[in-house]
């Protein structure tokens, strides 16, 4: 309904999107970005197909070290993955907290 209210009062399409739609969607987008970050971080098959020669994502390195039997390095790198996720999550909480403009507080129906 907040979106319907904006459809009636709409000054123009651009402002409708920037001032109403995007801020209302921001929470969902932040959650979705964390989810995608986790999926992309652990992604091996797609990375193998698309990286340029000589570089490697963290999963590709783990893959290669496994081949050479460097167990300690593999274990270490595996620990880095959840660590990166936690750092990104903390960053997102920071963003969520400081960008008040983009973070709708849902008003109670009745107080």
């Amino acid at each position: 309904m907040p979106v319907d209210a904006a459809r009636i009062l709409m000054p123009n399409r651009f402002r409708f999107w920037v001032q109403i739609h995007m801020p209302l969607m921001m929470r969902t987008c932040i959650a979705a970005s964390l989810l995608m970050f986790v999926l992309a971080l652990g992604e091996l098959p797609a990375s193998l197909l698309t990286i340029p020669p000589g570089t490697g994502t963290i999963t590709i390195r783990i893959y290669n070290y496994m081949h050479y039997g460097a167990t300690e390095t593999v274990a270490g790198l595996c620990l880095v993955i959840p660590l990166l996720t936690i750092i990104y999550a903390i960053f997102l909480f920071g963003v969520a907290g400081s960008w008040r403009f983009f973070l709708p507080k849902v008003p109670g129906k009745k107080t």
């Binding site: 309904m1 319907d4 209210a5 459809r7 709409m10 209302l24 008040r100 973070l103 507080k105 008003p107």
Partner: peptide, 21 residues
Amino acid sequence: VPPHQRQVGFVFQASALWPHM
């Protein structure tokens, strides 16, 4: 004629204020 050109005002059942403004 789209809603914003009809010169109507709508007070919604649950107020529908924009919570971020």
